[in-house]
Structure formats: C-alpha cells, structure tokens
C-alpha cells in the first residue's frame, strides 16, 4: 500500500490522475472501518485532510459552495441557519466523535442509499462538483447516485464540493432507527419548501437502490398548498402526500427492516415533515 499526502488541491488531482486506484480518505469514518476490519486493502491511500480549500465554504453566484471536507459538526455550527434541513440530518449522524470527522464529501463518496446527507441534498436540488486534471464538472446530485454504493465519479476524479441554494423556506428531515443516535437509517425523508418559487422538494433515504426523489408527491403538494394564506392542508391532502411519497420508494426487505414497514414509515414521516414545515412557513 502507498500513502500520499498532497498539500494542495492541484497536487491531489495530479496524484489521483497518476494513481486512479488510490482511495481518498478525509474523515475516515467509512474508510477506516473497512481497513480495520480487513474488508478492503487499497493499493494506495490519498489523505485529503491537508488541503485547506476542502474544509472551507463560501458563496458562488447565489449558491453556497461547500468544500467536500466540511464536517457535519461544521455544517451544524456554521450553516444551520442557511441549510436547516441538512443541519437536522447532520445532527442525526453517529455521535459527536463521528460528526467531528465525517464529511458530506465522504457520504457522497460512499454513496450508500442510507447516507443521511443525501435526502436533504436531493430535496434542495444540490449539485456535486467533481474535479480532475482535465477539468471541473457539476452534476445534479440525483444524477450522481448510480446504484447502491455507486456514483458517477470517474477514477481520475475527486469530489471538490457541493453546491446548494440557501433555504428559501422551511426544511425538515426525519429518520427512523432503533435508537436516537448511532444508527444507520431504516428509512429517512427530507423536505424543502421554496416559498418564493412555490416549489416543494423531497428526498427519500434508505428505501431504494439510491436515494430518491418523490416527483409525483412534489407536484401534487405544490398544487394543493395554500401559498397565499398558508392555511393548514387538510388531513386528506397530508395523507395523500404521504401515500405518494411511499409509492415513490423502491424498498427491499433487509436486516434493518421490511419493505412494507419502510413504505409505511415513509408515509408517516412525509406527512409529519410537511405538517411541521408548513406550520413554520
């Protein structure tokens, strides 16, 4: 095994181009588990924690551009007001020790359908910025996930950042697990309401081969919500929204739960998230 520790981003990209098999590491909260338990022996490891740009965030043409190495703790403390949905999801990740190290870049790199950052990123139409020595490209996060633990990153690429619009209305996130902390989601749901454009975004986690959007549910509720007076939607409307979210999921039975339970829980979470978020609108 080789160990690379680039000091700059351009050095990192050059190393990745020269060693496409090399595995990047940032927080190590996924990578180290695989190394410690002998599940993986990469030919080489590239440590990206020396690259200061990766841990920074700023604005880019009205969007927040957040470095791939920004930790969950940083997101909660520094961006909770602008990205409330992602901050709620971040608070449910692991423990303080995990949130202090784990990053959204690493969550995207692993691309688990259960990754907690993914539903809020989907709900707010985020983009992933990929970079290589041959250039930079930005992908809608929905196109980034290609299968269970698979993503659209080429072997010569690294994740530089993700881009997301600051919230233009209430956002919510909900997750089902056996405990309040330290759990991989049985299933999860994120909602982002854009009061200016009168749009609703959604994200479903851990109930399909990739994180998913519930497009029909979004279209339905956009048409139903009382954008003028912000009146509470009827129980029937809330229920229908929940059913459409559940119908958009593609869950399986696995050790954490059954497909039937996941659909049921998603309908409940979707209804509640909408109710909570709309009450705050």
């Amino acid at each position: 095994m080789e160990f690379f520790q680039p000091a700059t981003w351009s050095e990192a990209l050059a190393m990745k181009a020269a060693h496409p098999e090399a595995m990047p590491i940032v927080g190590g909260t996924d990578v180290m588990v695989e190394l410690n338990l002998d599940h993986r022996r990469p030919e080489a490891i590239i440590d990206l924690t020396r690259i200061s740009e990766l841990t920074q965030w700023g604005t880019d043409d009205g969007l927040l551009r957040i470095g791939a190495g920004v930790t969950y703790s940083q997101l909660i403390n520094e961006l909770g007001d602008r990205l409330p949905g992602l901050a709620i999801a971040s608070r449910t990740v692991g423990s303080p020790q995990i949130r202090n190290r784990g990053t959204v870049g690493g969550n995207l790199g692993t691309a688990s359908p259960a990754g907690d950052a993914h539903p809020p990123l989907l709900a707010s139409d985020s983009q992933v910025e990929l970079a290589s020595t041959s250039g930079v490209r930005r992908l809608a996060v929905g196109e980034f996930f290609t299968g269970p633990k698979r993503n659209a990153m080429r072997k010569d690429e690294l994740i530089a950042a993700f881009l997301v619009e600051p919230a233009r209305g209430p956002q919510q996130f909900s997750k089902v697990g056996t405990r309040n902390a330290m759990v991989i989601a049985v299933c999860s749901f994120a909602l982002a309401i854009d009061l200016e454009r009168r749009r609703v975004g959604s994200g479903i986690g851990s109930a399909g081969p990739t994180p998913l959007r519930a497009i029909e549910a979004e279209e339905f509720i956009q048409g139903e919500l009382d954008w003028e007076n912000r009146a509470r939607p009827s129980d029937a409307t809330l229920r229908r929204f929940g059913e459409l979210v559940a119908a958009a999921a593609k869950p399986i039975d696995d050790v954490r739960g059954t497909a039937t339970y996941r659909r049921h829980a998603l309908a409940v979470m979707a209804r509640r998230c909408l109710e909570w978020a709309w009450a705050a609108a």
């Binding site: 160990f3 590491i25 490891i45 995990i98």
Partner: peptide, 10 residues
C-alpha cells in the same frame, strides 16, 4: 475523535 478512525499518517 475516535482514534481508531484516524489513519496514523493523518
């Protein structure tokens, strides 16, 4: 942090 999740070189 959890020391088991930090790579020595890091």
């Amino acid at each position: 942090v959890c020391a088991c999740l930090v790579l020595g070189g890091q």
